[in-house]
Structure formats: C-alpha cells, structure tokens
Design a protein around this nucleic acid. Structure first.
Length: 692
DNA sequence: AAATCTGCAC
C-alpha cells in the first residue's frame, strides 16, 4: 500500500509506461486520463504527484477499492484492463461475496466470459462460492453443470451452499453422488443438518463417517457434531463425542472446547460446562458469552452476573451478543437500575446502536415498565430492524399502552417492513389490552389475507383470549373447531380464564380437560376450575378437585414479589416475616385495610381456592406478597414516587381491586408486573380494560 | 481455497 502510494521516479516510470501501453486501452484523451489517474489513485493521498498509468497500477487500484468495498469504482477500472490477471478476478469475486453483491458478481462473471480469459478451477470455484453464498443457487447449479472439470472443492462449495439454504435433500443427493469425499464435504453436510434443526440426521451422518473413514474428522466436524448433540439435547451422545475428541487428540482447539462447554450447558450439566470453561487457556468472547447466558437460562442470575463482572475485569471486550444476554437477564428480573448501568457502559464503548444490543435495550426498558426510555432507544437507532420494532410494539402492548403499540405497528407498515408472526402476537395482545375485539379480529384475518403469513398457535391463543374475555364464546368455539394447528396449552388456559370471568361452566370443563391432558401438574388449572365451581356453589365438585390435587401431588407454587429500591432488590414471600421491616409493613397494611373498608372496599371471598394465603389473611395479618411489596415501597420512598412491583405468578383479583383503593388513599401511582402483563393503578382506577 | 462454537422480540 505504502509502496504504491509513493511516487515513482520519473525516468523509470516512463519506461514502465511504454512497456504496458500496448495492452492498455485508453478511452480518454491524455488530458482526461491524467485527471482519471489522480481521481482514482490518490483519493487517500493529497500530494500532487505525477504518475504513470500502467497495468499494474490499475490492478492495485482495484485491490484497494475492493478492500474498501468500493465495488462500483473497482468495476469501472476493470473495464479499462484488457487482460486481467487471475488475482484481480479472484479479488473482485471475493469482494462481491463479502458484500453479497450478486449483481456486481454477475458483471465480473460476464467480463470473464467476454475477455476470452479461460478460467481455471480456482476462479470457477470462487464464482461458484459467490453464487452459493449470495443465495443464487440456480446460477451456482448452472455454472456447476457447465464446468468441464470439477474438483472436491466445487462439490463442497455447492453442497455447503444447498445445505445452508435448507435445501437439505438436494444437498444430500449431491453428497451421495460425489466421487470422493473429504472432511469439508462431511462437515458441510453435518452442519447443514444442525443449522436446520435436524440434529439426529447430523449425528447419523457422523456415525456413518466414523464407520467409513475415521480419519476424515477434524475440529470443524466435531464442533458441528457437538452442536448437534446439544440441540437434541442428549448428554449421553455428547459424552461419547467428548470421549472421541479426547481419543483422537482433537481437544487442542479453542472452538472445540467452546462447543464442548456449550454442549454440557445445553444438556443440563452446567457444572461440567463451567469446569471445561475454567480449564480453557484462551477464552474468546464467544466462550464467555455462551457461559454467561447458560447461567441465565438455568435461572442462576447471580452466577451469570458474577461471571460478567469477571469478564469486564479481563482483557476480553464484551460484544453486542454479550450485552443482549445480560440485558435480557435484567429484563427478566426487571432490574432497571442495573440495566441502565449496562446501557451506560454500552454507550461508552459504542455498542448501543447495534440492532442486537438496541433491541435488547428496548426489551429491557419495556419489561421494566419504562416505555419512555424504550421508545427513546428505538428512536435513536439508525436503522431499526424488525426485532426492534416488535420489541417496542410488544412493550407498549404489555404496558397498557395499546394505542401507542398500534400506532407503531401502522408506522412499521408504512416504513415498508414486512411484519412477521411475532409482530402480530404484540399487535393482538395490544388489542386484548384495549378491549378492541373487532379490531383484533380484523388484524387476525389480515395476517393471512394481507400479509400472506400463516396463523401460529400463538395467534390463535391471542384471539381466543380476546374473544373469551369479552364473552364471545360462540365465535371462539368456531375458531377452535376449524383451527389449522393443534390448540396448545396457552389457548386452553385463555379460554378457561374467559370462562371464569363469565361463569361458562360447560366450556370451562372442556378447556380444563384439554389442559389436564397436556400438563396435569399445573396447579393453576385446578385452582381456576375449582373457583368456577365455587362461584356456581358446586361445593362437592370443589372438594373433588382438592382431593385430586392431593392425590396427584400438585402443589401451588408460592407467590413471590419483589421491588427494587436504590439498586437493591427486596423479595417478599407470602406469610414470610423475615424482612427487617416486617413489623412496620404489617402495621401500615393494617391501617390501610381499615381505611380501604371505610372507602367501600369489599374483599373477594368467593374465590376459596384461589390462594391459601387468602384464608389465613384475616387471622395472622399475612398478606399477598405483592401487597407487602407495595406497602414496603410506599413506606420506604418519598411521597409521590411511583411504586413498581413485580410478581412471578399472576396477580390475584383481590389485590388487583385493592390496588385501586391503595393508589387513591396513598396518592401513589402503582405499577404491578405479573408473570405476563403490567397493571397500572392511578387515583382509584386501573388502565387494564381486559382484566377480570 | 472452501467451514466449526454465542445470538434480541411472543
């Protein structure tokens, strides 16, 4: 580069020029040619230097433009050269491949054909790869068929291109036809299966490979096959491969170790994964991120954050994937303060506009109930992708801002982006939150009619939720009876919930029966059904359900609520008085209850089985966990501060009503996020129009 | 001269 930029000595340059003048076409007059040189050669060098135009320099210019991804300019210069060398073509094709520029790649291919250059296998394979990677398999296939000679590489490039696109059958056909196979062929085929979620076929192929020719496996093959074992997931097979790796001495590569650790993590053996992680000599950011995320997915938040802290102390820099995982963990426990800290860090290192990281930020702020910040992050994104749009829409929907959610959806459509099935989950739940049944139905039908997508089980669950909540059971049943996919547990649970609100006993029994078949261990189904019977005064049935629960050993999960105050998370369990301020909280709640009764609050006594907590309440002053958390929030923050509380289960009806009164009496905005939605209470009313 | 491990939205 430096040599190229340095001016040539004039005496030498003229002879070089003469040497090449025969093979260079000059479409410009000498005057224009002069300015052309300066324009192309010295973009990055302001020195006014006299240069001689020669073949070599044209080629070097092309190399530089390719390095800078300035394909258009490189192609312009290509037109000036009569007989480009192999390396020029190779550089150009590689550059097209890198920027996935199919059209420019075709121009180069055309140039090769017209220039009379007879491409060797090297160039042809490059072209083949370019077509395969630009997803233009028709061109790749045509070229492959035209090729007079093919080597292993040609086959492999085509196979790995076919396999990556998901055309596994075609790839397999090619693979079977191959005269000879090397480890590239095997790896391409195996990783194709893994990538398209067919791990068992990948493992089968690996077994076949071991049987036919053991020497063909290398670090790439075993990494792929470990990913297959992780995807099943099957610890036994994973351990077998681990043994194989040790026997064959393939354990010297970092990526293999990384895949190994990942396999153990995914197969549920996190200690073993950490053990391998600790033994690794040279951990890269992928390894770190994998390990940290594994902890989070295992519900081990503390270990995850601790490891992240270790990472920040190391010399390895976290990337946007790392932050996406960590922010997701913040979102799960709604730690806005912690999330903000990471946001600040991301801004400092310049990671915040990356789509992956920005979407995670939008998600985190939404899950913490801060749609203002979520929207701000979104608006700052240079080019928001579909995931960011969907995060924002879903965030507004969950936060009781359906108008904003639908407004952003319309904006998304106007921007020309095609929504996907997940976007519509957000849209439909926004309609549910707003009680917009007909609008919801309209969107539901538009999924197929306007957007050419198919209805997923999630869409059906959403629309049944919407119809059942508003008591439109006939329509709900009609949809269920002619659904294109099997109704899942979320759909039945929505229907059951709707039946509870409207006291539809017959349909409730159908829903509960279906739920018992899918997951007989979920206590929520028993409790809801019992409550429906209780409301109808059918006490024998209630007793029967209690008995069945005992027999099957079904236990209601304990309700858990938490609140973050000054970066510290306080967790409350119903009936648990271990918090240092327990006495104060109970006193406050006692006073509050009295005041609430005066204001006309009637505790809901019909719901006998909804909670055991309920029954004990009057006797020992043990309150629902979310009530305790709210009370603690009120007494530990200055007047006027909004209270944000989170619960692992769904908020109970009684508390939902109580919070309306509390928001008025204490003059506080109360925000409760339960397992699946937000509830906003202000001055005696709640924003959720869909709740109970 | 081609490839292997992480991964945001419901």
């Amino acid at each position: 580069m430096r040599g190229f930029l340095a001016p040539l000595k004039s005496s030498r340059s003229s002879s070089v020029f003469n040497h090449f003048r025969k093979v260079i076409k000059f479409p410009y007059s000498s005057q224009t040619n002069q300015s052309f040189q300066q324009r192309t050669f010295f973009k990055s060098n302001n020195r006014d230097t006299t240069l001689v135009c020669n073949h070599k320099r044209f080629e070097e210019t092309i190399h530089i433009f390719c390095q800078q991804n300035r394909l258009k300019e490189a192609l312009q210069i290509l037109q000036q050269i009569d007989k480009p060398s192999v390396s020029i073509y190779s550089t150009l094709i590689q550059s097209c491949l890198r920027s996935r520029a199919l059209q420019q790649g075709k121009v180069v291919h055309q140039h090769i054909k017209l220039s009379g250059f007879v491409p060797g296998l090297f160039i042809l394979n490059r072209l083949l790869e370019m077509y395969a990677k630009c997803d233009s398999l028709v061109d790749a296939q045509n070229l492959f068929d035209e090729m007079p000679d093919r080597d292993l590489c040609s086959w492999n490039v085509l196979i790995s291109g076919y396999a990556k696109m998901g055309l596994l059958q075609q790839a397999k056909n090619l693979f079977d036809k191959m005269p000879d196979r090397d480890n590239f062929s095997w790896t391409a085929m195996i990783s194709g299966y893994v990538r398209h979620e067919r791990p068992n076929e990948a493992l089968e192929l690996f077994r076949m490979m071991k049987r036919l020719d053991n020497s063909k496996s290398n670090k790439f093959t075993v990494s792929s096959v470990l990913a297959a074992a992780a995807a099943v997931p099957c610890l036994r097979i994973g351990k077998e491969i681990h043994g194989y790796i040790m026997r064959t001495g393939l354990d010297s590569d970092e990526v293999v170790w990384s895949a190994l650790s990942d396999m153990y993590g995914k197969c549920g053996s996190i200690e073993e994964a950490r053990h391998i992680f600790d033994k690794m000599m040279d951990r890269d950011i992928v390894t770190w991120t994998t390990m940290i995320d594994r902890y989070f997915q295992d519900g081990k938040r503390k270990e995850g954050f601790d490891l992240f802290a270790d990472l920040l102390r190391s010399r390895i820099k976290p990337n946007e994937f790392t932050f996406a995982g960590v922010l997701n963990a913040c979102a799960d426990q709604s730690s806005e303060e912690l999330g903000k800290k990471f946001h600040g860090y991301m801004t400092r290192v310049g990671l915040d506009p990356f789509p992956f990281a920005a979407s995670a930020l939008v998600h985190m702020y939404s899950k913490c109930g801060n749609t203002v910040s979520a929207e701000r992050v979104f608006k700052r994104m240079p080019r928001p992708d579909l995931v960011s749009w969907t995060s924002l829409i879903a965030g507004f929907a969950q936060n009781g801002q359906p108008d904003e959610a639908l407004w952003y959806f319309e904006l998304l459509i106007k921007s020309g982006t095609q929504p996907d099935h997940i976007t519509f989950v957000g849209v439909l739940s926004a309609c549910a939150h707003a009680g917009l049944v007909d609008k919801g139905l309209e969107y539901f039908h538009s999924i197929i009619e306007q957007y050419g997508l198919t209805h997923t089980a999630d869409h059906y669950a959403c629309i049944i939720d919407l119809l059942a909540r508003s008591g439109r059971f006939k329509e709900a049943e009609n949809i269920i009876n002619k659904m294109s996919v099997k109704p899942d547990k979320f759909l039945w649970a929505s229907l059951l919930g709707g039946c509870r609100i409207h006291g539809n006993l017959k349909l409730a029994e159908r829903a509960a029966e279906a739920l018992f078949e899918i997951e007989c261990e979920n206590p929520a189904t028993y409790v809801t059904l019992a409550n429906i019977y209780a409301t109808a005064g059918m006490w024998t049935e209630v007793a029967k359900i209690r008995k069945t629960m005992d027999e099957r050993g079904v236990v209601k999960k304990p309700g858990l609520s938490w609140i973050e105050i000054k970066r510290e998370v306080h967790v409350f369990l119903a009936g648990d008085n271990s918090h240092p301020k327990s006495k104060e909280i109970n006193e406050f709640l006692g006073k509050l209850s009295k005041k609430m009764k005066e204001e006309g609050f009637v505790p809901d006594t019909k719901l006998v089985l909804h909670d055991v907590e309920e029954e004990q309440k009057e006797q020992n002053l043990s309150y629902h966990s979310e009530k305790v958390a709210v009370a603690f929030g009120i007494i530990s923050t200055p007047e006027g501060t909004p209270i944000k509380v989170f619960k692992n289960l769904r908020t109970c009806v009684d508390c939902h009503n109580a919070f309306k009164f509390i928001s008025k009496i204490a003059n506080r905005k109360i925000i409760v996020r339960d397992s699946n939605r937000f509830h906003y209470f202000e001055d005696g009313s709640c924003s959720c129009r869909d709740y109970w």
